[in-house]
Simulated assay, not measured.
Amino acid sequence: MNTKFYFDQTDLFPYEPIHPKYMFTYILLSCMFFTYCNQKIHHKKSNWLQQNTLLSFIHASICSVLLIVGVLQATEMFEDPLSHANHFNYTLLAFSVGYFLYDFVDCVQNSTTSIVPILIHHITVIVFFSHVLYYTRNIGYAIYGLSLEINSVFLHARRLVRWYSPFSKTVQFQNFLKIFIDIGNYMTFVFFRFGIVIAGLRALHREGFRLNPIVKYFTVLITMAMGVFNLILFYRLVKNQLFGKQSKRQEPSEDDVLVVDNRVLLPS
């Protein structure tokens, strides 16, 4: 009888590492997918920011659906997110790393504004998720952090609705759509962005001894940084909601407010 190997004696699930070749394969396929999407949605009337936001919306939407599927088909993950791992969630994390790599290159090549915060965010996410994938360890908590993409769907939709024509041009439908997006935005912001930070810090306090010290302190740092960014973004959203519609000339400032979106907020 084969003896099950556990990475740590406190682990609930046996350690079953996935070969890194799958990580590199899935990341490459993800980069190719978003490159293809970029070519297909390219429109002469759209500027780079609009196209980049649309791709971010596509990534967030796909992630949101797959996250729900991943959680429902492996609810035992909640029993021990640190040691739990399966190929589906592994692939989802690699898919997101591929997107962040693609977006990193896209921002460097095409952005005309300061992108230092975005690049720092992308590098940190890529390093953190790649470490998780390489060692097949801490996948559950990485999935927790990635769940903030559910809020990113509403953040991006808020901008896209202003840039592109809705399905119906009736005033009633447009008002309903904006109200729906605003309600979804604030509800998912509180639950997934603030909630994930609280859950992450609580888990680090309770189970930090199970992590490598370097990984532990790195994770504490990025989780606290995400909390600060969340507070700043939430303040700007509320401020814009209350005072950002004073005049049509001031309307473009809403784009500047939302530049600090999910790409600047690091998953825990």
Rank of each mutant, 00 (worst) to 15 (best):
Gly145Met: 04
Thr113Asp: 14
Asn138Ser: 11
Ile232Pro: 00
Asp103Thr: 13
Lys21Ser: 13
Thr35Asn: 09
Met23Phe: 11
Met226Lys: 05
Ala94Cys: 14
Lys44Tyr: 12
Phe34Thr: 00
Lys216Gln: 15
Val108Met: 13
Thr124Asn: 11
Val238Tyr: 05
Val260Lys: 03
Arg249Asp: 14
His205Asp: 10
Gln172Trp: 08
Arg137Met: 06
Phe192Pro: 00
Gly200Pro: 08
Val161Ser: 08
Leu155Ser: 08
Ile179Gly: 04
Ile179Ser: 11
Thr3Phe: 00
Glu149Leu: 06
Ile123His: 12
Phe229Ile: 06
Ser253Asp: 13
His156Phe: 11
Leu204Tyr: 02
Phe34Gly: 00
Gly98Ile: 05
Ser56Val: 02
Tyr90Lys: 05
Gly145Pro: 06
Arg193Pro: 04
Tyr99Ile: 02
Gly244Pro: 00
Ala60Phe: 01
Ile214Met: 07
Asp11Lys: 02
Ala94Pro: 03
Leu265Phe: 03
Gln50Asp: 05
Phe7Gly: 03
Ser130Lys: 03
Met224Trp: 04
Leu265His: 03
Ala60Ser: 13
Ser152Ala: 14
Ser165Ala: 14
Leu133Trp: 00
Gln39Ser: 09
Pro81His: 04
Met187Gln: 10
Val161Gly: 05
Ile179Glu: 12
Glu76Pro: 04
Ala74Val: 01
Ser165Glu: 14
Leu72Asp: 09
Ser111Ala: 15
Pro17Met: 07
Phe13Ser: 05
Phe234Tyr: 09
Lys216Gly: 03
Leu211Phe: 09
Gln50Lys: 08
Lys245Leu: 08
Lys40Gln: 15
Ser130Met: 04
Phe173His: 11
Lys178Gln: 15
Leu266Asp: 00
Met77Val: 07
Asp182Arg: 02
Gln51Asn: 07
Lys44Asp: 15
Val257Cys: 01
Phe229Trp: 02
Leu233Tyr: 02
Val108Trp: 12
Val238Thr: 13
Gly145Trp: 01
Leu28Asn: 07
Phe176Thr: 14
Thr188His: 01
Val215Met: 02
Phe95Thr: 00
Gly98Tyr: 04
Phe7Asn: 07
Gly208Lys: 02
Arg202Ser: 15
Val260Asp: 03
Gln50Asn: 07
Ile41Asp: 08
Thr113Lys: 15
Asp182Met: 05
Pro252Gly: 03
Val228Cys: 01
Ser147Trp: 01
Val264Asn: 08
Phe154Gln: 00
His131Asn: 15
Asn230Ile: 04
Ile126Thr: 14
Lys178Cys: 10
Met187Tyr: 13
Arg193Trp: 05
His156Pro: 04
Lys178Leu: 14
Tyr6Trp: 12
His205Phe: 12
Lys245Asn: 13
Lys216Asn: 13
His122Ser: 03
Gln174Cys: 10
Asn47Met: 06
Leu233Phe: 09
Thr35Glu: 09
Thr3Ala: 06
Glu207Phe: 11
Val65Asn: 10
Glu254Ile: 14
Ile126His: 10
Tyr141Asp: 02
Ser152Lys: 01
Tyr186Glu: 11
Asn86Ser: 10
Val125Ser: 06
Phe209Gln: 06
Val260Ile: 14
Phe191Lys: 03
Ser114Asp: 14
Leu146Trp: 02
Ser96Leu: 06
Lys216Phe: 05
Val238Ser: 03
Phe7Ser: 06
Val161Arg: 08
Phe192Asp: 00
Tyr217Val: 11
Arg206Glu: 11
